[in-house]
Amino acid sequence: MMIKKYKYIDHISDTGIKFYGSTVAELFESAAGGMFSIICDLRIVKPVEKKNIEIGGRNIDYEELLILWLEKLLYLYEVENMLFSKFKVAKIKKMSGKLILEAEIYGEKIDLSRHDIKAAIKAPTYHELEIKEDEIKSGWKGKVVFDV
C-alpha cells in the first residue's frame, strides 16, 4: 500500500501536483504516483507486472530528470497500454557527468471494464517546475504542472 505523498494544485487549464519525499528517490516515487492518480484511481490498479527502468542524461538537473522519468512512464502507459501503481526508485546517482535513475515499476494492463480512465495527460511541463529541499521537514518537495 502506497502512502499518499502528493496533492493536487488548482490550475485553471491544467492539473498540477505538489509531491514530497524524505529522499530524492522517494520524491520521484511520489511524483509518479501523483501523475498516475490523475489518470486512474490507483486503488484499483493491481501491481502485478514489473518493469525495470533506467533513464538519465548529461548536464541535467533533478528537474529535467523528473521530466524524463514522468515522460518515460507516460510512454509506457500509452505504448504498452499499462497503468502503474507502485514505484520503487532504487537509485538516483551521478556518474561521469550523467544523472541516472534506476527504478522498478509495477502495474497491469488497462482493462476498461475495471479501470475508469479519468483524464489523459499529454505531458509534464517545465512551467513552475520545481524540486527543492524542504528544510522544515528535512526532506524534499517538488511541483509539476501537466498538460491534460
Binding site: H11, I12, S13, D14, T125, Y126, H127, E128, V145, D147
Partner: peptide, 9 residues
C-alpha cells in the same frame, strides 16, 4: 485568453 504554461492559451 486564459492561463497556460509558457505562452498563455
Amino acid at each position: 485568453i486564459h492561463y497556460g504554461y509558457g505562452f498563455p492559451i
